[in-house]
Amino acid sequence: MRVTIIAVGKLKEKYLVNGCKEYLKRLGRYGNFTVVELTDEPCPANASAAEEEQVRHKEGNKILASLPKDSQVIALDVTGDKTDSPGLARRIENLALRGNSHLTFIIGGSLGLSAKVIDRSHWRLSFSDFTFPHQLMRLILLEQLYRSFKINRGETYHK
């Protein structure tokens, strides 16, 4: 199984960098995991709706240009489908059983994802109604992927 995470924005906080490195190391035994980090677009502090849309559009074009061919695209979107950890594990397992050996998860920038990215996605996944910083979301996603692979292998993991 190959998993690509496309994330807008650079991780700056040391604890997030270290946490992501740790989960990527743990995930290495389950497949090939790659993080593609894209630069976020500058946005004025008091940006208009049009300026925010322009930022999402530019970041969206970078995301679309970075999508691996023939991968199942999963956009992290607050308005997407909600599931629990076993549900995510089942979804990953079902995708693999249907021949989807490459999954791509997309984490947008601080303003979210462009409509083009949402439209290109095969599945929109929401982790919560809460809003998380996009840098923290990367760590949360990696932890949930690790948990999913542990569940699918029948391995124990703390609750």
Rank of each mutant, 00 (worst) to 15 (best):
T4L: 03
I5Y: 08
G9V: 08
K14V: 00
Y15V: 02
Y15I: 05
Y15S: 13
G19H: 03
G19Q: 01
C20Y: 00
K21W: 11
E22R: 10
E22G: 04
L24A: 00
L24R: 12
L24N: 03
L24F: 09
L24D: 01
K25Q: 11
V35E: 11
V36N: 09
E37T: 12
L38S: 02
T39V: 12
E41K: 05
C43M: 11
S48K: 08
A49E: 15
A49I: 13
E51Q: 15
K58S: 13
N61F: 09
K62N: 12
I63E: 02
A65G: 12
L67M: 08
P68C: 08
V73E: 04
I74K: 08
I74W: 02
I74M: 00
D77L: 01
D77V: 05
V78R: 13
V78I: 15
D81F: 10
K82H: 12
K82S: 11
T83L: 11
D84W: 11
S85R: 01
L88W: 05
L88T: 04
A89P: 09
N94K: 14
L97I: 05
S101I: 11
H102Y: 06
L103C: 07
T104R: 02
G112S: 09
V117H: 08
I118V: 13
S121I: 06
H122T: 07
W123H: 11
S126W: 09
S126G: 10
S128L: 03
F132P: 00
F132T: 00
L141H: 03
E143F: 07
Q144I: 05
L145S: 04
Y146V: 01
F149E: 02
F149W: 13
H158A: 08
